[in-house]
Structures are given as structure tokens and as C-alpha cells.
Design a binder for these strands. Structure first.
Lengths: 195, 195, 195, 195
DNA sequence: TATGAATGAGGTTTCATTCAT
DNA sequence: CATGAATGAAACCTCATTCAT
């Protein structure tokens, strides 16, 4: 009697995640995913009924995953500056593991049927927004809507990563040079946000 | 003697541009484009041989178009601050006309066979880099690699636009509230970059 | 428990063989073949991925098939003359069943990417070449390269069959008259080769 | 005022002949032919209305051409053996110039709507048949139907040429070796036919 | 749980042909 | 005599999905 493996479902999702986010193969077919996972194409369908469902599940999991990581950092019991530093480090680590995830999400976010099912603002985010307002009162950061502070943070972090190929060409940079550039940014972003 | 019509080719490209960049229909088929342009599908093929070629041509034209607009602003004979303001205005105008163009380009840029055929850094960009270095010396902007200054500029401008749906959800903002937020950013971006 | 049908793949190949070789419909489409086999066109594609692959498989099978029949006759333990007679009979039988096979193969052979994957001369052919050399030494056949003897054999057998329509016209022969002509050839060919 | 060229029609036919018979590109499109002839595709259509008509005209011309060459040799005032030699030489010369012509004709001949419009047996052929019968009476060639003598002649000449790629593989022959083989055949064919 | 067989829908491309100048 | 533009028909191919074990 065979041992129930049962890991197939998660294996397929992980493989899809890898293909989409790490390898950047946006148009991978179910066949491609099945092949990479070492299962038959129909098994993919057995578990997920349709490609769209697999798609959505992988996407949602990735979103949730990222949100959990965000929350962990944002709700941590640390001084504001440390939180920011932790956030930046976490973000860069994510991008190193899944270089295409940002770009992929951008696409999804802009697709016509984008709809994440969330009820309310995450508690961690609520805490962080409080932090931001406090810092503004203390004068360590400029006065602005908290949403704009968040937008600035994300912008300065994420945008260079998703347009990396373009800017490499534009400024004639090697991979190493671009890495150096990114490295410089960490301190710089802190300064821009906190000055 | 009738004038040769011949506008069909450009018409098809313009229609494709509209569909891709203004309506965000990334997966539009040749049929969709033909229908929207009021021509038969095979005519599309007559001019462009294949969908990929149409795709590439439209993309390249859009890139060139944008670069020309950049160059016009960056090389203008204006004080640095005015240039920045002009750039920001131009960028927002572009995005208003073609809301999905950024997102579309992100995707292409990250696709595996991305390769723009450029020989050297654009003269206008070279001028602007000079401007940046001059401003640094004057102390009106912080010292950093010029490339990082450009990255900051683009990041703060573009990222909120391409992640708009997500942040609207995240902060529970209406369209009007988000517009207000964007409006605030113009002044704020100038301050962040120039402080 | 029902028996797996699974005969579909072979059925499609056999049908294609029939259409190409027996009916001479060189330009049959996948649809034609699917219709004749009583399956849907996409099933043809399911098994063979592309028309070319089906094409190649059918062709290769036909080649192998014929080679096996050749080998059986050429390697048989019979006196040389009997072998020749057997070969001629076999050849005519083949042609009766698949009148267009020869012509089809001529075309393929002359196509630009013709390449059968054979490693070495078939053992049966090697035996037959030995036979030929022996007969030459015995003086029952004229001295010549064995390859030329083979060429003569095939020429005299096959050529009239593949140019049948032309010669029928040229000599104003009815089908029956042409059959008579072919019938006479059997003895004549033996005489020409063995004299 | 431009010089009337007018050679375009013949140029197209000659180009088609070249492509079909010399290069063996059976499936060349009108575009291919137009390109090779240095004219636009629509010009091909202007002259020939349809691809089939061009096809047929080229084919018919090639047939007529060959028949004229046959006739010239067969009706010449020469001894029988000389005629045969002349015929063989002429045939080989033709094949050298247009290696794929034979194979192409085989295909056409076997196509379902093959129909050359001839009224009667060519006078030259009639003369040659007389010759054959005379030689039979003289005992220089074996007794058989004249049609079979002709079939033998053509078979031994043409078949090795149209199956050349196959036999090269089968007997592991280089191009040079195959040429040598063909060279030997000239004398051998005469012997086989005349013994 | 897992799979091979089969299908349908939709997309792309090729090509000969016709139109209008 | 010559051509660029446009069209129609048909072929081909890919893919997600369903069926029947």
C-alpha cells in the first residue's frame, strides 16, 4: 500500500511561484508548470480545475505572504528608524529571491478584474500609520499624508527593481555597477524619508 | 486623381496603441485590433506579417515617442527647478492619456528578449546629468550618483501611478481622494529632490 | 472493465497511409485525414503535435515496412533466380495495393531535408550483394558493380509503374493493354538481368 | 520615355523553371518566384492570372521542350546504336542542368488531373518504333513490344537519377562515386538493350 | 488520487486572388 | 504594362478543459 504523498498540490503551487516570480515566465502554460513540477498536465487541472484558479491562488498566496512579512516588520516593537531599515532589508531579500514578483504584481494589479478581498486596513499598517503621524509631530519626517509617505517608501524601493533592465541600458551600467547603485540607495532612502 | 489612402498602416498602429496603452487590453487579439480600426484582420497581417512585429513596432514607437518628450524637456534652456516641474507635468499628462503605458512597458522591459537598440546616452540626458552635477556642487540637491537622482525622480513619479489600484484598496481611497493625493505629490516630490 | 481503445493513433496513421499511398492525395489536409479516420482534426494534432510529424512518421513507417519486405525476400534461402522472381512478385503486389507509394517516395527523397537515419547496409542487402558477386563469378550475370545491378533491377521494375500515366498516353494504351505490357515484363526483366 | 522591356513574362517563366526544376523547390509560392525574378508578386499574377496557370504553362513548356529534344535525336538520320548513344547523352545533359525535372514530372504525371493534350504519337517516335522493329528482325535486340523497349530505355536512364539520394545512402556512396556509377551505366545500358 | 484520451474554442499565419489606380 | 493595397479562404497550431477509467 502506497504512502499518501499529498504534497502534490503544494508542489504545483510552489513550482508555479518559481516559474512566475523567479524565472519571470509570465506566459508559462499549464504544461510548462506540470513539466517543471514533474507531474502530468492533467494533475494540475485535477487540483485547480482551471488555470485561472491556479493563477489566482498563487497570486493570492504571494500577496498574503508578502503582507505577513510586511506586518511582522511594521508591527515590531522597534524605533521608527529601525523599522524602516528592517523593511528595506526585507524588501531587498524578497526581490533577490523572486526578481519578477514585483513586475508580475504590477501587471495583475492593473488588469481589469483585479480585486483583492480585504475587509479593512491591516492592524500592523494601522500601527505604522500611527508611527508615521507621531514622527511627523516629532518633526523627524516632513508633514504629509501618511499614504504619501508609504507611497514614497515603496516607490524608492521598488521602482528601480522593476525597471532595472531599462536603467541598466540607459546609464550603460554593468550588473555589478547596478548592484552598487542599489546598495547606495539604502542609506539614501532613509535620508530622503527622514530628513 | 484620388489621393492614395495609405493611412491604414498608421491607423492600425494608432489603434493598437490605444487598445494597449489607453484601454489596457494587454491580451487583445489581432482581430480585436482590426475590429477597432475598422479593417479586416488580414489587413493587419498584410502590413505587419505577424502579431509580434506589430507588437514590437508599437512598443518601439511608444518608447521613441516618450524619449523625444523627455529630451525636449530635459534639454530645454530653463533653470533646473523649472525643468523638473516641466518634466513632472509632462509625465502626468502622458499618464492621463495612456494610463496603462507604464505598466505595459514594465512588462516588456522585464520580458526575456528585451533589447532596445541604442548606441549611446541621449544628448539631452547628458545635459541633464551635467545639470544635476552642477546643482550638487551648488548644494541645492544632495550628493549622490546622478543615476540615483534619476531613479528617485522616476520612482516617485511613476510608481504610484502603476500601483494605483493596489494603494487605492490598501488605504481605502476613492478616485477623487487618490487624485488629491497625486496632486499633493508634485510639490512634495520637488521638495524631496531639491531639499 | 472496458478495454482501452487506444487504437486511434495507429488508425490515423493507417488512414493517412491509405490517403497518401493508395489514393494519391498528396495534398490532403489534416482535416481530410481526420475525416477519413472518423476522428476530429484536433485529435490528429493531439497525437502528432504537427502535420509534419505525422507526415514523417507515416513516411518512415512505409520505408521500414518496405525494407522489411525486401529483406525477407533478399535474405531467403533460395536460389538466386527464385529470389529475383520473389522480389518482382512482391514489388508488383505492393504497387497494386499502394499505387502512389513509389511516386510519393520519389518526391520525399528529392525533398531538401531528406535524411533517413540508417547506420549501415542492411544484412539482407549484404547477403544479396554477395549473391550477385557469386553469380557474376559463375557467369550467370554480367560483370558490373553490384550497385548497378540493383539499380537496374529497381529501374526496370519501378519506373514503368511511376510513369504509367505518361506512357499510357504516349503509346495510346488502354489500362488492359498496359497491364499486359507489365505482365510481359516479368519474364523480360529476368532475361535482361540474367542473360 | 522608358524602353519597353517586355521580357518580364518569359523571365517569370524561366525563373519558375529554374526554381522548380533546377532548385527543386516544389512548393515555391508566387512570392518566391516573384522575388527570384525581381518582380512584384502581383506582376506574376498579372501575366498568369493564377498560380495554376503559370504552373501548367511552365510544365507544358518543359514537356514540349524535352519532346523536341527527343524527337531531334530519335528522328536523326543515324544508325540505331548512334541514336541510342545520342539519346543517352542528351538525357544526361538535361538532368545535369535540371536535376529535379524528372522527379517533378513524375509527380505531375501521377496527379489526379494529369492530361497532356496530344493528338497522336509523335512522328519521330513513330520512326524510332519502326527502327526498333527493324532491329528486332535483324536480331540485334531481343524481341519484345516496342513500348517495352522504350520503357526499358527510360527506366535504366531515368530511375537512378530520381532515386539518387536514396541509393547514395543505401550503398554508402559519395557524390563522386555515384557519378562514376552513372558513367559506367552508359556502356552498360547499351549492352543490356542491344545484346 | 491519478492518468491517458479526447475535445472545443480561439488564435495565428499563409496564400492566391482581386481591386483600383 | 505595372503596382500597392486589400481581401477571403483555408490551413495550422496551441491550449485549457472534460471524459472515462
Amino acid at each position: 500500500m502506497a504512502v499518501r504523498d499529498t504534497g502534490a498540490e503544494q508542489l504545483i503551487k510552489d513550482t508555479a511561484k518559481q516559474i512566475f516570480f523567479a524565472e519571470g515566465k509570465r506566459n508559462a502554460t499549464t504544461q510548462d508548470i506540470a513539466d517543471a513540477a514533474g507531474v502530468t498536465r492533467t494533475l494540475v487541472n485535477y487540483y485547480f480545475r482551471s488555470k485561472d484558479i491556479l493563477f489566482k491562488q498563487v497570486f493570492d498566496e504571494a500577496m498574503l505572504d508578502m503582507r505577513n512579512k510586511f506586518d511582522a516588520v511594521l508591527a515590531a516593537d522597534l524605533p521608527f528608524r529601525k523599522k524602516l531599515e528592517g523593511f528595506i532589508d526585507m524588501f531587498y531579500a524578497e526581490v533577490t529571491a523572486f526578481p519578477y514578483k514585483e513586475s508580475f504584481m504590477i501587471t495583475e494589479i492593473n488588469s481589469h478584474d483585479f480585486d483583492i478581498d480585504k475587509k479593512e486596513i491591516s492592524p500592523a499598517l494601522r500601527i505604522f500609520i500611527k508611527d508615521i503621524q507621531l514622527e511627523m509631530e516629532k518633526g523627524t519626517i516632513k508633514k504629509m499624508r501618511p499614504a504619501n509617505f508609504m507611497l514614497n517608501l515603496f516607490s524608492l524601493l521598488a521602482y528601480p527593481l522593476i525597471t532595472r533592465p531599462l536603467f541598466k541600458k540607459l546609464f550603460e551600467l554593468s550588473d555589478i555597477e547596478f548592484e552598487r547603485l542599489l546598495h547606495d540607495r539604502k542609506k539614501m532612502i532613509l535620508e530622503m524619508l527622514l530628513c
